[in-house]
Amino acid sequence: MEIVQIIINSLIRASELSLLALGLTMVFDILKFANFAHTDYALLGAFLAYSFSQALGLPLIVSVMIAAGLTGLFGIGIDKVLYKRLRTIGVQPVSLMIVSMGVEIALRNILRLIWSSETKTYPIAVVKPLEILGARITMLQLEIITVGFLSMVAFHILLHKTTFGKALRAISDNRALASACAIDSEKMIRWMWFIASAYGVIGGTMIAMEHVLYPRLGFNILIPVFCAAILGGIGNPYGAVLGALILAFAENVVLALDLKWLLNLGGLFHFESIQINTGYKPAVSFLILILVLLFKPTGLLRKE
C-alpha cells in the first residue's frame, strides 16, 4: 500500500477511536473504573441516529446531534440508577466494573432486540473518491477527519477555558479538596457522563458510517478503544488522542508490511512476499494493549 494511503487511513481510524477513547479515559480517571459499556452507549447513539434519519427523514448531521444528546442523557440516567448508589455505599471500583459488564451485555442485546442483528448502512450517497497524491479518500472520510479534529479542539476549549473544565480537572486531581472548594462533584460527574457518552456517539457513528452498523460493533471496538486510552495514559485526554493515532498507524502499517525481508535474512532465503493475514487486524490492538500493560501500564503521557 502507498504510504500516503496508510497515513490517510490511519488518520480516519484515529479520528474515530480518539473520540471514543476520550470518554473512556475521563470516566476511568474520575470514577476509577473501566466502563465496559462505553462503546455500547456509542452504538445506542449510532442506532438512534440511524432511526432518526430513516424514520423521521432528518438530515444525518442533525440526527447524530440529537442522538448524541439523548445518549448523553442515557449515560446520566444509568449513572443515577446504578453507579451513583454503588458509589455512595462505597463498594470497590471493581464491582462497578462488573456492573458495567452487565450493562454492556444487556444494552448490546437490547440493541439487537430492537434493531435486529442485520447490518445497516446510513443513507449516504456513494460518490467517487477524491485522489490526493495517489491515495483515495471519500468525501465522507474527509468529513470524518474534520469532525474528529473539530471535536478535539472543542474538547480542549471545554477543558481549559471554561469553569466546567476547571472544576472537572479539580475533581480529577483531588476529589476531597474540590468538594471543600464548593465544587458539586456529583453535578460535575453528571456532566462528565453526558460529554463522555455524547462524544462516544460521534465516534461510534463515524465508524458505523464508514463501514456498517450492527449491534456487535460496540463490543468489537471495545478493545481498540481501551488500547488507545491506556496507551496514551489513563486520565489524559491528549494521551487518548495520541494513543488512538499510534494504534491506528500500527493497525494499518502492520497489515501493509511485507515480512519478506525479515524472513529472507538478507538474501539467505527466497520467500515470496509474506504479509500478515488480515484476519488478525483486531489482534493488533489486543497485542499492543497486552504489551503496553506489561511494559508501561501508566501509558505514554502522564496525567497532567
Binding site: 446504578l82 448508589r85 451485555i105 448490546r108
Partner: peptide
C-alpha cells in the same frame, strides 16, 4: 429470543452485584 435471554443475563449480573 437469544437477545432477550442475554438481556436478562445482563440484568441478573447488574441486580445481583448491586
Amino acid at each position: 429470543m437469544a437477545s432477550l435471554r442475554m438481556v436478562i443475563i445482563g440484568f441478573l449480573i447488574i441486580i445481583f452485584v448491586s
